[in-house]
Amino acid sequence: MLRVLQTLFGLLAVAFLMLPILAILPLAFTSSVFLTYPIPSWSLRWFEELATADAWRMSIVNSLIVGAGATVLSTLLGTLAALGLRGRVLPLAGVFRTLFLLPMVVPAVVLGVGMQIFLARLGLGSSYTGVILAHTVLCVPFVVVSVSASLQGIDPTVERAAMSLGAPPATVFRLVTLPLALPGVVSGAVFAFATSLDEVVITLFVAGPNQRTLARQMFSSIRENISPTVAAAALLLIVGTLCLAGLAALLRRRDKRLIAASAP
């Protein structure tokens, strides 16, 4: 009886989370110009619109540019931060860690306003560099968390063993620490990319018309004319994110296996 209730509750929770997404997706394939049910007949015209209309096409390209830039930058910075915070050798390491994670909890509007002023002062307002930098700030915490978890799983005696076998510090990092932390780095990068992909608020503040990202374009298209292109774009985002999340989960599983193996 309890089992049945548990299963039922679980299903309800999943439904609560998934239904809004499931409700919008079929509309991507509607032939109607309205984003409403019932669907008169099936069509791919909105995907065609995505691929051909300049505003949409450009926004997809922009999202990829900004996403790639922010991912590379935040993965690099986040990994370095996680390495620096490792082992608590740094004084005030706890304070630094909190600071690095702050962008996760600070309201996006606050960050957005601050960044708009800051980037304008630097002469980076309405530029790709500016948007990439702003997104990087938002993505770094995900990388720090993911890489830190990965580093924590590395047995320090393994690195000591490498040193005693003749490896100088840089080589220990290259041949032992980095390969063992790699799954964390990759899954951090995936999170970073996904975060950049669906970021709207900060983009609203710092991006000019030329840096309009897909999420930003969806947002304004909903305000201006609710066309089913939004649903098609949403499907694109969801499928892309799911693929990346699947990849991250796969890597984490491999990571866990390796780490379970290194502890006797």
């Binding site: 047995d155 393994v158 000591r160 063993a161 005693s164 003749g166 490896a167 510090p169 390969p179």
Partner: peptide
């Protein structure tokens, strides 16, 4: 001297093999 310049083989209690 740092460990990597000492030419000593160390065997640890938990083996410390490279898992990868």
């Amino acid at each position: 001297l740092p460990p990597h310049r000492r030419q000593m083989g160390v065997v640890f209690q938990n083996y410390a093999l490279f898992p990868h």
